[in-house]
Each structure stands twice: as structure tokens, then as C-alpha cells.
Design a protein around this nucleic acid. Sequence first.
DNA 1: GCGACAG
DNA 2: ATCTTGTCGC
Length: 225
Amino acid sequence: MTACKTPGRPDLDQLRALQRELAAQVIERPLTHEPQVVAGADVHIAGGEAVAVAVATDADGLMVREVRELWRHVDFPYIPGFLSFREAPAIVDAVNSLEAKPNLLFVDGQGRAHPRRFGLACHVGVMLGIPTIGVAKSKLVGRYAEPGRERGSTAPLVDRTETIGMVVRTKTGAPPVFVSVGNLITLEEAVAWTLRLTRDRIPDPTLRAHQQAQRALATRRARES
DNA sequence: GCGACAG
DNA sequence: ATCTTGTCGC
């Protein structure tokens, strides 16, 4: 049999076509409801085992309402531009496991600031049908001028002639983050909510999810030794 | 051909 | 992301 799926080398041409198709389903428009439940999600992967964590907080990110941890097998490799095929399934499951569906979700990666305008935050946003914001710690595509050093400074992220996101200084003196629309929100709102929920460099719900995922992996490693 | 390249 | 604790430098 030669027609088996080969985890090592996915059909990227086919996936690019799929991304363009799904990118057309992304809705960029103002929030229709004031978010009451905000969430952040992150995934850590070690040797085919992925742990996704979703943390739900109040609208200011100060009170944690819920933390869900979900394990999943992952075979898709990391390929720049195709991260969502590796991480989106686990994130979607983790968010769906929350008892209260969030009105806004922060995703650790790009939204529309992607070569085909379909980063991880868009993928998750389309699958869940909720507003999502992509907050990435580094750039995937686009050009930008360094924003001012103070927290709150911004600079547009531009690809060709299109503004695909915003480079945002969320912490004075720290490297900026790359904010873009995931789904059902505008770029301006995405930037405002990112600043609102960020106390350190990345949004609080995301930071909490990140730390919880790290603890979960460490725990599993200790258990296996 | 040469860089760039989310997590 | 991950390998990995303390240590070198401004």
C-alpha cells in the first residue's frame, strides 16, 4: 500500500488551497456583544503528545473562572505557515471543554497576519464561531517600523499594500507583540482588548494557559521517569 | 540562488 | 516550541 498518509510530508499545495477557502469565512467586523467571559489558550507539544490549556477569565482578566486541560495526539509537523493544522484541533477541544463559552478568545499565534490571511487564530475562530484575537510573540510576514518604547505604542504591520495587523508594545521596554484579527472582531478592537487584558507582555489568560501547559508537561515527564 | 520562517 | 542552570555581561 502506497496510499497511506505520511505525517512527515503533508500535501502543502492542498492545504494552501484549504487555507484560502477557509480564509474567506473569516468575518472582520465590530464585536456584537461586550465580552463577559474572556479566554486564552495555548498548546505545548512533546514527542507527539500535545497538551492544550484553555483559561477563562472575567472581562478584565483578573478573575480566573475556569481552567481546562486537554491531551491529544499530534502527528502534524511544525511548518511555518501551517501551524494551525498542528495546534488548532487541540485548542478547539480545550475551549469546547469550558463550561461557559467565551465571548472572546486570545490565541498564541497569528490571525490574519499570515501569508494567506489564515493563521492559527483565524482557524480556531472559524471552527468555534467566536471572536478571536491572534497575539504572536514574533512576526511571520509583513513589514513594520519599530513602535515607540512605551506600553501602548503601536505600528501597522503591512504586507504589500495591506495592513494585516498591528505591532503593539504591551510592556514598556519589552519586545512588541504582533496583534491581528482572528475572527468576528476588528483590528482596532483587537488591539484595545489586547492592551486591556495584558499586564505583562502577553494577555493574562494566554500567560496563565502557557504556564499551566508547561506545568502539565513537566508533570507528565516526571511521571514517566 | 538567497534569505525568512507563528509555535 | 524544545534541549536546559547557572552564569556572563551591560
